[in-house]
């Protein structure tokens, strides 16, 4: 049976992610929440969730001795980053000057400005960006299979990724600014929104991930 590891590094509540994965995996995969480098090494696929600040995220990964295991997974197997788990894949962050992420995607992490108004209503936009917003597909990807372009997903965040190379953007969302709500390359797919809290569309994405062989164009038959 396939083994899916949800990386636990004390950054946020991982139970929801594990529960949603278990729901779509049914009996076909073992879902393991783990902070053990060896378990990550043995996993067939890896989910990297998290909420909070990148600096803390990197510190916790180091404290748990997980940096190498995460880097190895990033290089070798289907890998899904969620929320902070997307942001941490960037090189740098505006959050704390000098903070360095895992550096998988050249680019930075930015904060929503606190004083932006909605173009149509003139209402001040709240930060965090919290609630359901559209994801417009920028590219085809196996993980979008069965999901409508422009579908709603659940967001809760104050920072967003700004990749240097727009080629990696596979989904875009607008909240005062347009940002990359989904990025991908090779075996990596990373989203700012929470598929585990996005009802049917989110479950569809998680199911696609469990069936994905890590090739950006190919999906294994279910």
């Amino acid at each position: 049976m396939e083994r899916v590891v949800v990386i636990d590094y004390r950054m946020g509540n991982l139970r929801s992610v594990a529960k949603a994965l278990a729901h779509v995996a049914a009996e076909r995969a073992d879902i393991l929440v783990s902070s053990d480098a060896r378990a990550i090494g043995d996993a067939d696929r890896v989910v990297f969730p998290g909420q909070g600040a990148i600096r803390d995220c990197m510190l916790e990964l180091e404290n748990h001795g997980l940096v190498e295991a995460v880097k190895e997974a990033l290089a070798s197997k289907p890998f899904l980053g969620i929320c902070l788990g997307q942001q941490a894949l960037m090189e740098t962050s505006e959050e704390h000057i000098g903070t360095v992420g895992l550096g998988i995607f050249p680019g930075t992490v930015k904060r929503f400005s606190n004083d932006v108004r909605d173009e149509s209503t003139g209402e001040r936009l709240k930060v965090p960006h919290m609630g359901w917003n559209n994801v417009r597909f920028a590219k085809k990807h196996p993980l979008w299979r069965g999901i409508a372009d422009g579908e709603y997903f659940y967001f809760v965040h104050s920072y967003y990724v700004a990749p240097q190379d727009d080629e990696v953007t596979v989904g875009r969302t607008r909240y005062a600014v347009e940002f990359s709500s989904a990025i991908a390359k090779r075996n990596l797919f990373a989203v700012q929104f929470h598929p585990e809290k996005s009802a049917r569309a989110g479950l569809a994405l998680l199911k696609n991930f469990l069936q994905w062989d890590g090739d950006a164009c190919v999906m294994r038959d279910a």
């Binding site: 509540n13 139970r15 929801s16 529960k19 949603a20 278990a22 729901h23 659940y154 809760v156 585990e196 809290k197 996005s198 009802a199 989110g202 479950l203």
Partner: peptide, 27 residues
């Protein structure tokens, strides 16, 4: 939380960080 995959908020009777931790861990 095992069967409904939208955000869940719980209120009422929460007194401590430990109460919060238990509810978040439950989903």
């Amino acid at each position: 939380a095992s069967e409904v995959f939208i955000p869940l908020t719980v209120g009422g009777g929460i007194r401590s960080v430990e109460d919060i931790r238990r509810l978040l861990n439950a989903g």
